[in-house]
Simulated assay, not measured.
Amino acid sequence: MSCSGTSTRSTSGVNSGPWILLEDLSLVYSDLEAERAPGKHGHKKRKMADGREKTTSSDDEEGLGKGRGRHILVNRTEMPGWSETLESFRMARESWELLHSHEILETEFKKICASWKTDNWLWFRIFLTDMTIYQGQYRKALSSLHQMAAVQQPQPGQQSPSGQASLEGSRALIQQASCHYALGEYRVACEKLLDVVGGLVPPTHEPVKTPEEQGKAKNKPRKGSDLRLLPCTSKAILPFCLQLMFACFKLRVFTDSRDDLSLGHVVVLLQHDWPQGESLFLKALDKIIQQASFQYENFFNYVTNIDMLEEFAYLRTPEGGRIQLELLPNQGILIKHHTVTRGITKGVKEDFRLAMERQVSRCGENLLGVLHRFCLNEKIMIIQSLP
């Protein structure tokens, strides 16, 4: 049975619910040099038939990722029977490969599958898709996922044993986003994950990090591309979607070209899992300082992290370099289309100061709720920010 197929039962007898196999994003906040290091998942440009360039993955060839010995990571607290589940998936993969290693075995196995009508077994289809993802055959996996999405519709209100709203019906969409990300197709990945986020309900309060989760950023970087098993719940999938969205913008933002809109999105998303992304936030500040200006009119709608607010307030001071920040709606229009007198300039500064004071009072807001609104309200703008 697939490790992310139908509900599994742990050795302790607790029903652990459905799981989903996705790209592991534990190192998403690592520095860019590590991201581009040899052995990491590579992307390259390839000309399309119409002359446009298309980003392709080093795994974009049939079977290239097979047998790479990828790790599947789990949160052991959330999955009490993790060892048994991973071992079952390994045995299932090896059995499948054995049955397809000889023509006679494969022929007989296909006859059995036909007589049992295994095409109608959803759990079996999920297993085959997960195995394809494990092998790094993302194109093949996407083809299977599109078929699954057509027949597997979300069931609103369905509850998992943990009490979290189940997203098993959205499994195909979530895995599509993960596969498109692995292929370097970031815009499509964002489209898929934002569709998923639209159906999620953010928790009323931020979950407390387990010691395992708090220490994950300290782990040494691993070679290759790992996978992770996550429960199909809003509690687990919303953070994954936020990390995946950040990953889609990460390489784009920290380049020589200027893109304030994407940089603003990254600042908003870096609030999640703070302070794990602090080093990248400081890198973003360095870029703003180099530019000597920054415009992002959604800043006060979605940035509530006190450390970030203090840093941006400092940028406007003489010590911070008097960086020109256009963070208020219509502030740019005021500056560009009016004669900037001493009074108007003073008024803009006062508006900024008052906005900062109001923002500090919002620091206690539920961050996942804020970021959920960001995904819903700015969906079109987020997607259009990616090529």
Rank of each mutant, 00 (worst) to 15 (best):
L315A: 09
S143Q: 14
L263M: 12
C190E: 03
N75C: 08
E213L: 10
C179G: 10
D130L: 02
R373N: 09
L25Y: 08
H272Y: 11
K110V: 06
L270I: 01
G13R: 11
T85D: 13
N219I: 07
S88I: 01
E357Q: 15
K117G: 10
L263A: 08
L244D: 00
R139Q: 15
Q271L: 04
S12Y: 00
E35Y: 08
K346W: 07
G69A: 13
L242I: 06
R358H: 10
G81N: 09
K209D: 06
G224K: 05
S262M: 08
S257I: 06
G215M: 10
A141C: 07
T6S: 15
S225Y: 03
V196D: 02
R358F: 07
Q291N: 10
E297Q: 12
M245T: 12
G332Y: 00
E97F: 12
P239V: 04
P203I: 04
T6C: 12
N120G: 14
G199Y: 01
W19Y: 13
S361E: 14
S144V: 03
L242H: 00
T118R: 09
P202L: 11
G157C: 05
I72E: 05
Q175T: 05
K223L: 12
M131V: 01
K346R: 15
D351M: 14
N377G: 05
F249L: 13
D60V: 00
T233S: 15
I382Q: 09
G39S: 08
G321R: 06
S4C: 15
L73M: 13
R322C: 08
T56Y: 09
E206A: 14
N377K: 15
E168Y: 05
I288F: 01
S162C: 14
V303G: 02
R68V: 01
D260V: 02
L193F: 08
R358G: 05
G347T: 01
H372N: 05
P18M: 06
L238S: 03
L280A: 08
L22V: 13
M148K: 00
L334T: 12
L98N: 13
D273S: 12
L32K: 02
D226F: 00
W116T: 09
V151H: 09
Y296W: 07
A165G: 08
P207R: 07
C363T: 14
R358I: 02
R70P: 01
T56L: 12
G39Q: 10
V348Q: 13
L227E: 01
A217N: 06
A292M: 08
S170V: 03
Q159F: 02
T77I: 09
Q295A: 13
L105M: 14
Y302M: 02
T118E: 11
I288V: 14
L327F: 01
L251G: 11
K250W: 04
N15P: 07
G51F: 04
N330M: 15
Y314Q: 03
M91Y: 09
T304C: 09
I174M: 12
C190W: 01
R70L: 12
A247P: 03
N120M: 10
T85G: 09
N301T: 05
G17V: 02
D351W: 11
F246H: 03
E87N: 11
H337V: 05
S293W: 06
R93Y: 06
Q384I: 04
G198I: 01
S115H: 15
G163W: 04
F89T: 00
L193K: 05
T255Y: 04
Q155K: 14
S160A: 14
